[in-house]
Design a protein around this nucleic acid. Structure first.
Ligand code: SF4
Ligand code: SF4
Lengths: 144, 144
DNA sequence: TTTTAATCAGACAAAAACATCTGATTTATA
DNA sequence: TATAAATCAGATGTTTTTGTCTGATTAAAA
């Protein structure tokens, strides 16, 4: 179904980008996020809980409660979200599914793939969601 | 579980590489492949059937039956196997899971990701399993 | 102080992916 | 020709991922 990130991770990134794009408005409910992103409220709620536990976003309970970024958007990297939800497997595991890989016997695909995955890692760790704020709003608009 | 290819696809690639590395010996049984790659016979059999249906490998039924490459290994690209088993979704779908993407409103991640996925596509379509023949044997040896 | 609207925690359900089993068919060889 | 050893097709079972529900807790506002 998903390409490289799990569905939960895809939606986690979408949600954090939405929160970033809505900065200025203090707190956003899971219901609003669900409506805007056109995904089930219950599912995004679970994901928001995970992101809260990893302190990427912050939550406020009770009436008028909701979620907000836990820190300045130029301090939140896409990588943080990926690691929080999917972990680091994609950066370390063998692309061909061979177990216990040893660099003494690299398989033929290793060099090319590890270069690609390194570039992906670099991109995810350099890009902050700050860079995305405005552009993502246009994307979400187009969902309507 | 798997990084970017499904488990079936990972094992499909492993199996085709094994067949390539065993060229000269005419026909290889699913049991040998399963033993060498340390995976269940029943599972790899199903995958070998799929690869046979897509004419990447050829099968011979009956006693002394088994599988062999359907064409010269310099004519089989990694991409063929990926498309046969996983299809083309990874090359076309949105990395963030947004539906009905329109290039009129590209989201912020689009440029970087599409470059990475283009490079992956290029690599998979250029690499033939011929290039891998000998090296992969060392990899399989190391599983023992 | 009661009601309302939100998150939270954990159980539950459904769907997809992964893996196995069974029996039919095919073919080499004793 | 009978037996053995292989693929093939499709059903079945298991595990993981995805998605939903329920009830508890929290906090704002009537
Ligand atoms: S060397 Fe080969 S087997 Fe090892 S991780 Fe790289 S691709 Fe996988
Ligand atoms: S432009 Fe954005 S939403 Fe569209 S496919 Fe690319 S990453 Fe996905």
């Amino acid at each position: 179904m998903a390409i490289i990130f799990s569905r939960k991770c895809e939606l986690g990134i979408q949600a954090v980008l939405y929160l970033a794009s809505a900065e200025g408005r203090d707190i956003i409910s899971s219901e609003e996020i669900a409506n805007e992103l056109k995904i089930p409220k219950e599912f995004i709620s679970k994901i928001l809980q995970e992101l809260t536990a990893s302190r990427i976003i912050a939550s406020k309970k009770g009436k008028m409660g909701g979620f907000s970024l836990a820190k300045n958007p130029n301090k939140i990297h896409l990588l943080d979200i990926v690691l929080a939800i999917d972990g680091s497997d994609i950066f370390s595991k063998c692309v061909l599914g061979f177990p216990h890989c040893s660099s003494e016997t690299p398989c033929p695909m290793h060099a090319t793939w590890s270069q690609l995955i390194d570039e992906t890692f670099k991109m995810l760790s350099e890009e902050t969601i700050d860079n995305y704020k405005n552009k993502v709003l246009r994307k979400i608009e187009s969902l309507k």
